[in-house]
Simulated assay, not measured.
Amino acid sequence: MSDNQPASKRPPRQSRTGLTSTGARKAASKSGRSRAREFALQALYQHLVGKNEASAIDVFTRDLAGFNKADAAHYDALLHGCVAAAEELDRLITPLLDRKIAEISPIEHAVMWIGTYEFQHCMDVPWRVVLNECIELAKEFGGTDGHKYVNGVLNGLAQQLRAAEVAADRANQPRA
């Protein structure tokens, strides 16, 4: 060992992309709204599968680890808004499905509720952000190719529910 080198040398730094080995975002890199969507997804799953009341689910969900890092107001809007508007959300989603809504996985169903609700009621969230967040939820919690199905349905709904925003966004895209 030479005199000008320290006794212990650190290993090279690992790159921090914010992604896990499966491609999902690491918890530390998630925003409060992303976390709110995750908790809302879990709560809506309980509603769809267990037929539990939103108020009981809400109490349970707020006690889960990490809820304090979520945007509680956004979570409230998603959970209670989706449950209250469930029939309308299903009415909007159903024409874009290739099967009966009862045959859709409860995870993908809940993710599509979240996306549809945000398209209608969260105008401060750009349509592409809604779409991307829902695809990420489906990748992380849904079936193998569920995110592709969610993408197709929500992309179709974006063109219907946010037509002007989608058209303006696409008009500004560079042509290849």
Rank of each mutant, 00 (worst) to 15 (best):
H147W: 09
L64F: 11
A164G: 00
G115Y: 04
D3V: 13
W113K: 08
V59M: 04
A138T: 05
A110E: 01
A56H: 11
L131F: 03
A84R: 09
E136L: 11
Y149V: 10
A54S: 10
N132I: 06
G156R: 06
L161W: 05
K100T: 10
I93G: 00
Q14W: 04
S29F: 07
G115P: 01
A86S: 14
S34R: 15
C134M: 01
K69G: 04
L64W: 08
P11F: 13
A56P: 00
P95C: 09
Y149I: 05
A102M: 06
D145A: 14
R62S: 06
Q159K: 15
M112W: 05
M123S: 06
A176Y: 10
E136R: 03
P6G: 00
E103Q: 15
E87I: 09
L97C: 06
H80F: 13
M123P: 08
I107Y: 11
V111Q: 03
L96S: 08
Q42I: 06
R170D: 14
R128L: 09
R162A: 11
Y45P: 00
A7N: 11
Y117I: 04
A7Q: 10
H147A: 12
P6R: 11
L137A: 07
K30G: 12
A65T: 11
A86E: 11
D90Q: 15
R13I: 04
L41P: 02
H109N: 04
T17Q: 05
E53T: 10
G66A: 08
M123F: 00
I114G: 01
P11W: 11
D145N: 15
A84M: 03
A158Q: 02
C122F: 02
R33M: 09
G143I: 10
V129C: 00
C134R: 03
T20N: 12
L89W: 02
M123H: 12
S31L: 02
L97W: 00
D63Y: 04
R91M: 10
N151V: 02
P174V: 09
A164Y: 03
T144F: 12
G32H: 07
A43G: 07
E118L: 04
F60P: 00
E140R: 14
A102F: 13
S34P: 00
L89P: 01
Q14C: 08
I114Q: 03
Q5K: 14
Q173S: 12
M123R: 13
E88W: 00
L96Q: 12
V111C: 04
L96G: 14
K100V: 14
N151Y: 13
H109P: 01
Q159C: 12
L131K: 03
D98T: 11
H121E: 15
L137V: 06
A40W: 00
L41G: 02
K139I: 15
I104L: 15
V166A: 04
K9M: 07
A110I: 03
